[in-house]
């Protein structure tokens, strides 16, 4: 059974096997297919139209399925690899071991935002950014630029306390747990972390930065934590909602998986800590 661990607890060997597997997916072209899929959904999910991957109730089950697919691709390269998660309430500065050269590499240089160290630096010639929204082919970051701050544990706890999963109009204007976690409303958790990292992470092609997976693995864990705190709160909406993925509707692009199928993560993996 796959166990997803806090990235701060990984051994040097676990870090190397994870980054090696990512680089192998990149080499074969498989990695970029994930970037393309994500960008296509982020550009087509709209508040007043069809919405699946973002700004909608299925934000959480969609990304759970997306991460599972990526994790399975990693495991096809190295069966020992699991997705780690980044608890950005704790490891909240550019000095965290997450950003060391033996793992994801650090922030970008001032001149052009280019990441200059670690396995994903352009200079290593193993991680060219090819699915992109602008002309630059190198990984960029601007960690905490402009004095931005990552969410605090207290802000996370306030969102986890929300009892209702999601509410009409089921989009970026909604009240409830999902939209506060996604960040279009309130203290802003998930969206703010994308902005804090900067570079490609701020764009629709955000999976170009491998930290995308660690960020979303933590968002996914927060969903599991929320379920544990509110066992009586179901996924909503339950049915008959135009433009929105109801509990038993299938989700694009897979068309064979529903939010109901994704509610219990323990069928696929567990976490290193109990929820």
């Amino acid at each position: 059974m796959t166990v997803r661990k806090n990235q701060a607890q990984l051994t040097a060997t676990e870090k190397r096997r994870f980054t090696d597997a990512v680089l192998e997916l990149k080499r074969t072209g498989r990695y970029d297919e994930f970037v393309t899929t994500h960008n296509a959904f982020i550009m087509s999910d709209t508040d007043n139209g069809d919405r699946v991957g973002h700004r909608s109730p299925s934000f959480l089950p969609w990304h759970r399925r997306f991460l599972l697919q990526f994790e399975q691709a990693l495991q096809a390269v190295d069966p020992e690899v699991a997705l780690p998660y980044w608890d950005w309430t704790t490891d909240r500065t550019p000095r965290a071991s997450l950003w060391a050269p033996d793992f994801l590499g650090g922030t970008g240089r001032a001149r052009d935002g280019q990441v200059m160290d670690g396995p994903f630096a352009r200079s290593g010639n193993r991680f060219t950014v090819s699915v992109r929204v602008d002309g630059r082919d190198f990984l960029r970051r601007a960690l905490g630029a402009g004095g931005r701050q990552l969410p605090t544990r207290a802000e996370v706890d306030a969102v986890l306390a929300m009892e209702t999963y999601d509410m009409p109009p089921w989009n970026s204007a909604s009240d409830g747990f999902r939209n506060h976690l996604e960040g279009w409303r309130g203290a802003n958790l998930h969206n703010r972390v994308h902005v804090w990292v900067g570079g490609q992470m701020g764009t629709g092609a955000s999976p170009n930065d491998p930290v995308f997976w660690l960020h979303h693995a933590f968002i996914d864990k927060l969903w599991a934590d929320w379920q544990a705190r509110h066992p009586g709160s179901p996924y909503l909406p339950a049915g008959g909602t135009p433009n929105v993925v109801d509990l038993n509707d299938t989700m694009r692009p897979w068309n064979d998986v529903t939010p109901a199928d994704m509610l219990d993560h323990t069928r696929h993996y567990t976490y290193d800590t109990a929820a």
Binding site: M43, T46, N48, A173, H194, V195, G202
Partner: peptide, 20 residues
């Protein structure tokens, strides 16, 4: 530039997708 309007009237683009 790929542009999108949010329900509350704010805007994002594909370059800054998470910051209305």
């Amino acid at each position: 530039l790929h542009l999108m309007r949010n329900a509350d009237g704010t805007w994002i683009s594909v370059i800054n997708h998470y910051e209305p």
